[in-house]
Design a protein around this nucleic acid. Sequence first.
RNA 1: GGGCAGGUGGUAGAGCGGUCAAUUACUCCAGACUGUAAAUCUGGCGCCUUUAUGGCUACAUAGGUUCGAAUCCUAUCCUGCCCA
Length: 380
Amino acid sequence: MFTITKKDQKTKARIGVLQTAHGNVHTPVFLPIGTKGAIKSIAAEELRFWGAEMILANTYHLWQRPGDALIAKAGGLHKFMNWKGGIFTDSGGFQAFSLAKLTKVSDQGVSFMSEIDGNTHFLTPELSVQIQLNLGSDIALVLDEFGEAEADKKSVAIMVLRTRAWAKRARLMHEKLIANSINPNQQLWGIVQGGVFRDLRHQSAEAIKEIGFLGYCIGGVANGGESEELMYQAVKFSNPHLEEDKPKHLLGVGLPEQIVKAVSLGCDSFDCVIPTREGRHGKFFVNLKPQDGEGYYTLNITAEKYKEDFEPIDNTCDCYGCQNYTKSYIRHLFMSEEPLGIRLATMHNLKFYLNLTQRIRDSIETGKFQEFSKKYQLVL
RNA sequence: GGGCAGGUGGUAGAGCGGUCAAUUACUCCAGACUGUAAAUCUGGCGCCUUUAUGGCUACAUAGGUUCGAAUCCUAUCCUGCCCA
């Protein structure tokens, strides 16, 4: 199900193939986010065309609307949205945190007070599994819980215990229902929590490993506020306690240089809203020219200095926007709120991320990853 | 020619004696965004400076009243409507 095809000699980086019922996924890989069953502003076929192999969708949102029963009726999320690649579904655990004002967590599960209709909905580890089976995703996650980056140790410890208990319950439910589901090849992955605390990460990783999953996520590292170093620490505290040959996904990460660094620490897959959300907000990621070093910079297309800049965002980029339009024109699209601007930015940034993971894979293949990772940086 | 209503910062449009460098919206400028309640949010937007319960210049123009005027008075210019 996951085959490591090459390990880097100097770091924990590796390249591998994750086999799913919807094609092979080459790792390290970046998963564009399609929370509600759509990558905002672009079609599934377009994304596939640009080379994405797996996307992430959200259990909570799809459960709320249009409902997992309807998606099951449609033949599963792949068919529903016409996405031919892999689908990774978040369990709804992130919403327990990000919608904290609207949620109440107990050992039994999470109750959500919907801001749309005011109703209260109760999500349990078992229900999350059922929903994800109805969605027919290729990789499903156990419901987990985490809190603020600054959360005190005591409360993090409680969340670690709860996440473990929920993982166990999710695992049992998944075993029970998988055979008769839309996607009998769906994998259920566990999640390591534990905040920034070495012993709690250790404890959580051991507990999740003991329950046994085909892959693991490192969670609770990208909720804003924490320092980058603490994020890497969380990975370093977790990964050594998990089987080396199983895939590891770093949830919610991140910036390009963070992904490069996390790969060197043994992470295989990533998902993040940054390329799509920031694209919608007018920020473009641009690779440095080879003569300027290894790395990238960002530009805000609405900046006045691009008003009369008739060059592409990046004339070495093979994305649709860079092939066809100038900064001046794209700035105009943003200034006049033409949806095309958002589409071009989303495509460009996703292509940037896909190209980045391609470069990471290539450099591991050719034994040059460490050199690459040491140089790779954001240039301001 | 006569009557009436108006002229406020990039725009629209509040304010109608002090708390006004002037509500608000838009435009514009800058920034943020990490398992997407996010095509969103925040800040700035007269000039200067030692960035401050600081200085200066400003609400059509010119005078005047007043301790004090975007706000009141007079004249002038301009705009719209109505009557000749």
